[in-house]
Amino acid sequence: MDTTMKKLPPKPVTAKSRAIKWGGWIISIAIIIWSCTGIDFGGIKPTAGQITGAIFNGLFHPDWSYVYNGSGEDLVSQLWQTLCIAFLGTFISAIISVPFAFWAANTRHKKFWVSESGKIVLTFIRSFPEIVLALMFIKAVGPGAPAGALALGLHSVGMLAMLFSEAIESLDDGPAEAITAAGGSKFNVAVFATMPDLMPAIVSNTLYRFDVSVRSASVLGLVGAGGIGYPLIIALNYRQWSRVGIILLGIIVMVVVIDWISGAIRKKLV
């Protein structure tokens, strides 16, 4: 049998593409090796395996008595507070986001630097750590749920306004021009052309942000800004693993249900 026929022809490779490929590999591997140096990998507690086992044990044998005991400190009321923080935070941020979105949207009728400056401000708000914001609000309104809601409300603007401004950029100019042509004022344009077109995008993005906010709100309690995070950190510190288990289960169920509901609503909207 003729074996030469079985060989595939070599792939066409130019020197440039080979250089890019090898260069990419070498640089990435160098970066990965560099990042492994100088990190203190020691110091893992000898009890790590035991604690992991205890947490899993707690997940499968949760402390059911904590679910509801009417004291206001139980799982259900803490989760409800977390949801309320997320809702209020999202509501506040949706309102603040609208003017920011119009500032940052790069439409035809605007100078380039106006929208660019808006975009930079939004990036700054996005990368300002939520926890620092929560601590600043704790200084202003005291520890508890209000600080969490306000911090979420301000932090979410960074992402929500960016999503809104993308929706504004993709708006159709037609309706607005039609209203201007028929003698409508700027206010008329906003009320009859821009807002109706924008509403589905606003609602859908706000719902999406609500999903994210629920996750954030369950974390803010770690710094004392209300919600389920605080009982969780207490239970972790006091090694009450069955309580850690029930709180984790509660968070997971809450997030899954909220994701499911908002996903269903968003599917209907589109």
Binding site: I39, D40, F41, G43, I44, K45, A48, I51, T52, I55, I131, R215, S216, S218, V219, L222, G229, L232, I233, L236, N237, R239, V244, L248, I251, I252, V255, V256, D259
Partner: peptide, 19 residues
């Protein structure tokens, strides 16, 4: 579903404080 900071606090409880 588990947020990053919650994962962080669980792993701090498991392996101890550190990177």
């Amino acid at each position: 579903t588990i947020p990053d900071l919650l994962l962080g606090s669980i792993f701090v409880a498991v392996v101890g404080i550190g990177p």
